[in-house]
Amino acid sequence: MNGSMVASPENLSARVAPTPLPSEREADRAQGHDPEGPLVFEAVYAAHFRGVWRTLHRLGVSRAQLDDAAQDVFVVVYRRLGEFDGRSLRGWLYAIAVRVASDYRRRPWYRRSVPLTESVIDSAPDPGQASELGESVRLLHELLATLSDDQRVVFVLGELEQLTAPEIAKVLELNLNTVYSRQRAARARFEAALARHRGRKARA
């Protein structure tokens, strides 16, 4: 992971404050945040908890640590909300989540495979669908694990959370060309891994 991304989440707000893109404003509005209006923690939590949770997990936080990591993100959000400059709430939240995930991955006890997400199984409408969905999710995590940390974060934010490259550049404080470069490499590796998986499955 980029060294600039491993800073303590306590120091985030001052670092994530570029001008928002129009799409960011629209996304924030769509998710309950009027950039012109006051921020209320509950509204932020309700609108963004799912995205933060998914992102933490897909960035490598194990299911067992997901509660703690999500809690860490939102405690930072709670503490820093008053300092948030109102530019890109979504970008700000993802920046916090990326740093928290990075922190968790570096912890000594974080050396384990990612277990199957129980929540997927729990929330699926029937066992058959649960099994299929669970298999897809397990595969997703296997494929994500083939990416480097740098590739993984741009892939998760871009392909799964559907941030644009300029948004990712701001979240990660990277040059836009660096983001494009990592995206290309991540996509290629992900696709190759998926093709290998399907090839194995076809032969089996």
Binding site: R50, W53, R54, D67, Q71, S119, V120, S123, Q162
Partner: peptide
């Protein structure tokens, strides 16, 4: 899989 890992309401409330 994009939305396949949404947390449950219990997850949301617990956190």
């Amino acid at each position: 899989v994009r939305d396949a890992e949404d947390p449950t309401l219990a997850d949301e409330a617990r956190v």
